[in-house]
Design a protein around this nucleic acid. Structure first.
Lengths: 332, 332
DNA sequence: CATAGTGACTGAAACGTTTTACCTAAAACG
DNA sequence: CGTTTTAGGTAAAACGTTTCAGTCACTATG
């Protein structure tokens, strides 16, 4: 049951090695009869091509690397699914590297992609201009920024105007009567976060509304819960009457604390998240959120990568629109 | 900026190709001087070894495949992290295939692993005896079942007695005064689910307590929320006074509906989950749960795989203990 | 009937490593 | 001083593919 190679198949089918290869890769150049024999030989021997050899010869791996900030966040796992399915259509497979919010791990995954000679890289980067990305550019490996706008002209990108998203969120809160909005999220080294904050600031200023910032190092429900408790403990006079959480995972934690602390949503305090993950609609008080088309963004990113592969000198970008999704956690 | 090969490094360093290879892989056989020159050459040229070539020559890929049921579930993403870090210590990297609860996708990922010639497979299988696993066994590629006991003697495995976990959960509910327990979870084709149910049944029977089963096709918060609403709508006489949800992700959805429906936890109805994910402690009512040491299980699985690689004829198994973690959602 | 063209097939080179077997010079030994 | 050992280095084969440049037997063309 050792490895069976193309040579074994050739022998068993009574044809040459090249014919086996051709039967598999350019069947139009091979007679029906030969194809048939090759196919049954493959079947009988249980032949599986060796991608390492193919890749070595071809100089291409037919795979992409996707580095993702934190796949536990359903937003990113949707992005991943979209990218995988789009890539698969064109015969590419995707190596997923989950950074778990750690820059270190992100870099390690990028190194791995380099070793594997992936044909392209999709990355939702943890910091603004990781030099590790440059390495790919220098090697001529196309890179697509996912969920992040390229400002250098060096990369293709799939993005969504997060500042606009921040504005939408805060405007909506203001329309619902908010006078004092809390922004929660971070770290601000992640561009999405700072953009959402910028948008929130702009909207708050335009409306003449107070904005208090609660910076965080990362985004998870536990942290949200802590922040929520801080809000609950605040004297009523100081307490914001609305919260914009930079992501749903955080928002859900906050929401739980607020309710646990006896605050009524949205009457005492309104809350809106970002991403519109499935969990948001299912929350105790269904969570308003700024929707991002995660699956489509992932799929589009893979498509742009393949397009850039075809036209190496071009850069492509696709902008998606944030859409307000109003549920019970805010007044409309 | 085209690809630079070991040949270029050799020329640049003024040594032979073999010396470069030796400097990298068995430095003890090469003089310090030569090593130095090779290293600087590598640095100056930006050489990155080609794994495809290395793999082709070596016949091994130095990588494992890990097929996981649904990585959005923090339990599995912890398992993945554990496996990745354990494997990395020994120079292996891990290809992660997320099945998103789909058998089809799981099989596609397994095929990919086969093409890539992974040196071993870690799998949290979606069904009991996928024939796709057999293929690896036939090829002599070691397979470790993750979060699932092997009953055939063919595979190494890392597991936890889920029946015992189910018993623990229901016993705990009963001790808290429950007379009518609801079990929620599925599908029962996934062994973990049926084992948890079996344990629950046994405990309920032993205690003379009624057990109602709510079968599901999958486990997500939205589904939990639906089930919770069904509970809320039940006439009080029919309504269970305790719930055992087969996993925390489901439990959290259920919990939200219960609270939204005005039931008091745990007075009107107690609820316990399974996995003890981080989110559980942070829930609106902190969720009691059956703890599984996810990270350790992942790490152990990778270790067993490497051990089986060293001793191909042996099979190893590691059993972990489910531990009751009591929080506010149940009476103690 | 000679030539060109075509369809089906094949041998061999090449991809970038690692490793085996071999070589040489210097050191150690008696 | 002659022989053996050792340290350091190298050429070449091999891993399993794909593809280029032929080869060969027909068929179509004039």
């Amino acid at each position: 049951m050792a490895d069976v190679s193309i040579r074994d198949v050739a022998a068993h089918a009574g044809v040459s090695v090249s014919t086996v290869s051709n039967a598999l890769n350019r069947p139009e150049t091979v007679s029906r009869r030969a194809i048939g024999r090759v196919l049954t030989a493959i079947d009988e021997l249980g032949y599986v091509p060796n991608v390492a050899a193919r890749q070595l010869r071809a100089g291409r791996s037919n795979s992409f690397g996707l580095a993702v900030i934190n796949i536990t966040n359903p937003f990113f796992s949707e992005v991943t699914l979209g990218a995988e399915e789009a890539a698969e259509k064109d015969g590419y497979s995707i190596l997923v590297g989950n950074s778990y919010d750690s820059l270190d791990r992100q870099n390690r995954h990028l190194e791995l992609f380099e070793l594997q000679r992936v044909d392209g890289v999709l990355i939702a980067p943890l910091e603004d201009q990781p030099e590790s990305i440059e390495r790919f550019r220098n090697r001529g490996v196309p890179v697509v920024l996912v969920d992040r706008r390229d400002r250098t002209g060096n990369f293709s990108s799939v993005w969504l105007d997060d500042a606009e998203g921040g504005r939408l969120a805060v405007n909506h809160l203001v329309q619902g009567g908010a006078r004092h909005v809390a922004f929660m999220g971070g770290p601000l080294t992640v561009r999405q976060m700072s953009d959402r904050l910028d948008g929130a600031r702009a909207a708050a200023e335009a409306a003449g509304v107070r904005l208090t910032e609660f910076g965080t190092d990362t985004l998870n429900p536990g942290l949200g819960r802590e922040l929520g408790e801080r809000i609950v403990r605040m004297p009523e006079s100081e307490r914001p009457d609305a919260i914009f959480a930079a992501n749903d995972v955080l928002a859900l934690g906050v929401l739980q604390s607020l309710i646990g602390g006896g605050l009524r949503i949205p009457d005492d305090i309104a809350i809106i998240g970002y991403d519109d993950i499935e969990f948001a609609a299912a929350a105790i008080v269904p969570l308003s959120s700024v929707h991002q088309p995660a699956y489509d963004m992932g799929a589009k990113a893979a498509e742009l990568l393949m397009r850039q592969l075809a036209e190496p000198d071009e850069r492509f970008s696709a902008q998606f629109e944030p859409v307000l999704t109003i549920r019970a956690s805010t007044r409309s």
